Simulated scan of single mutants.
Amino acid sequence: MSIRHGLLALLEQGPRYGSRLRTEFEARTGGTWPLNIGQVYTTLGRLERDGMVVHDGEDEGGRALYALTGAGRTELAAWFARPVERAGPPRDELAIKLALAVGAPGVDVRAVVEAQRRHVTEALHEYVRQRAQALAQSPGHPVEVARLLVLEQIICHAEAEIRWLEHCEARLLRLRTETSTP
Results as ranks from 00 to 15, higher is better:
R63K: 14
R63V: 02
R86N: 12
D50C: 01
Y41P: 00
D59C: 06
R86F: 11
T69G: 01
P34E: 10
G72M: 06
R82A: 15
D50T: 07
R49Y: 05
G72E: 09
E75H: 05
R86A: 15
R63N: 15
P83K: 09
A67E: 10
A77N: 07
T42G: 03
G57R: 08
E58Y: 11
L76E: 04
D92I: 09
P90M: 03
P34Y: 12
D59E: 07
R91S: 10
H55V: 09
L44D: 02
A64K: 14
T43N: 02
P83I: 02
P83G: 08
M52V: 04
W33G: 02
Y66V: 00
V54P: 01
R91Q: 04
Y66W: 13
P89H: 01
R63H: 14
W33C: 05
G38Q: 01
G88T: 10
W79H: 15
R73N: 11
R63S: 14
I37M: 05
T42R: 12
A87K: 09
D56K: 05
F80H: 12
G62R: 09
D59I: 05
F80A: 07
T42H: 10
G57T: 12
G72D: 03
D50R: 13
L76S: 06
T69E: 06
R82F: 08
